[in-house]
Amino acid sequence: MNTKPIPEMSDLSRHYWEQAQREALVLQRCTRCGTYQFYPRAWCTSCFCQELEWTPVSGRAEVFSFSIVHYPPFESYTDSVPYILATVKLEEGPQMMCNLLECDLDAVRVGLPVQVCYEVREGDFKVPQFRPVGGGA
């Protein structure tokens, strides 16, 4: 059983996580200035209006930076090391944290094209993750 942490969702982010259960990646987008943002919040980070709407995005991204973690941050990760932690830049602009799955440790590099995928955790909870485009890498 994958016992890695399940996020404690807030009312603001509930839709993001509910969509992830349907394997859809959604971001807030400002209907006034068009800015996409992540993580979910109550105000547009660009024009500070509150007219935000959830928008499905492509799930295409590239690796902005990464680390291969050899030291588990807490016990539920003990069996997972080494794992790849990455910040990816989504095609739509925002950056987010993830683990790169199905990726050789030797193949990861800054700029690597990646695609969203979903990791199943305890209670069938799906967490958005990324893997190299075309798989394997």
Partner: peptide, 18 residues
Amino acid sequence: EEMEAPYGVVGAPPGYAM
């Protein structure tokens, strides 16, 4: 926490590594 901790980025080393 909600958007980063689930990926095992806790404490300082992973962030500084990136």
